[in-house]
């Protein structure tokens, strides 16, 4: 029985990882073929870095992910503190609004934002992409910070005030350090979601402005391209690294040692 379970798990992991591993292996293949191994090469990686369109898209992706995750973290953390102090009914209303972009299909979020930009004659491009990314990142920051605020001991803040700290000073020295793990998790989550997004970017970008996802989609639609394999390998390693960091953070934080509560 135990052996059977192990075999089943192994098969599922094989199913999950085989396509990714094959992609990675063939990114080092000398020929364009995906079936025959014809020698090791780093050629596709050089080609990748020489491709100005892809490099521009990489730059856009990173800039948008950085800016949108930082912006969403600032607006979202402030909002979470505000929401935490709201009365019950108002809180419920705001949380429902917060859940809309999480629950709504990406395609609807994307096209509704596109309609907004076109309707208000807002030029589609890098800036509209940034606004869209901040919008879908915000709920995730709030959902990461709110639980930390709930765990917070109210007396701490009041003690700081009693000891003569100004409200701002108390926030800075007492509340902020306590909720920091939630803020950082939220920011990393926002960053990853932004890098990963395709559907919403696809609808809210203008001609000539691409992110990596958009480039991959337009290349993949035309068929196989070894440069995408090289790109996949690099992206996979980046995601792996980010996840390891996030995971070490959450497990190092004594409050939720109980691993059964999955954060993902």
């Amino acid at each position: 029985m135990k052996l059977l379970k192990r075999c089943y798990a192994a098969l599922i992991y094989l199913f999950l990882y085989a396509p990714i591993l094959i992609l990675i292996i063939f990114s080092f293949n000398a020929s364009k073929s995906r079936a025959n191994w014809s020698g090791f090469t780093l050629n596709w990686y050089f080609e990748l870095f020489k491709d100005r369109q892809i490099m521009k898209a990489l730059y856009n992706t990173v800039v948008i992910a950085l800016l949108s995750s930082v912006m969403a973290t600032i607006i979202g953390t402030a909002a979470a503190i505000g929401i935490h102090n709201m009365k019950k009914l108002k809180k419920k209303l705001v949380m429902n609004l917060t859940y809309i972009p999480v629950v709504n299909p990406d395609i609807v979020t994307g096209l509704s934002l596109m309609l907004l930009f076109v309707f208000t004659k807002f030029p589609l491009g890098l800036f509209s992409l940034l606004l869209a990314h901040i919008t879908f990142n915000l709920p995730y920051v709030i959902l990461s910070v709110l639980p930390k605020l709930k765990q917070l001991d109210k007396n701490l803040y009041e003690a700081a005030l009693d000891l003569g700290a100004s409200p701002l000073h108390a926030y800075h020295k007492v509340i902020l350090p306590e909720i920091m793990p939630g803020i950082i998790t939220g920011m990393l989550l926002a960053f990853t979601l932004s890098v990963d997004d395709f559907v919403i970017s696809f609808f809210t970008t203008g001609s000539g402005v691409s992110t990596l996802s958009i480039i991959i989609y337009s290349m993949a639609r035309r068929g196989i391209n070894p440069k995408i394999n090289a790109l996949s390998t690099l992206l996979f390693l980046t995601v792996l690294l980010l996840l390891i960091i996030v995971n070490l953070r959450t497990s190092g934080n004594g409050a939720n040692k109980k691993r059964s509560d999955l954060k993902w």
């Binding site: 999950l16 990882y17 396509p19 990714i20 094959i22 992609l23 063939f26 995906r34 990853t192 890098v195 990963d196 395709f198 990596l212 996802s213 991959i216 989609y217 993949a220 196989i224 995408i228 394999n229 790109l231 996949s232 992206l235 996979f236 995601v239 792996l240 980010l242 996840l243 999955l262 993902w264």
Partner: peptide, 17 residues
């Protein structure tokens, strides 16, 4: 969880190849 966080276009593309 790791594959879930990889760009889903690439996961789909992997099956194309």
């Amino acid at each position: 969880v790791v594959p879930m966080w990889m760009n889903f276009l690439l996961r789909t593309y992997a099956w194309m190849t």
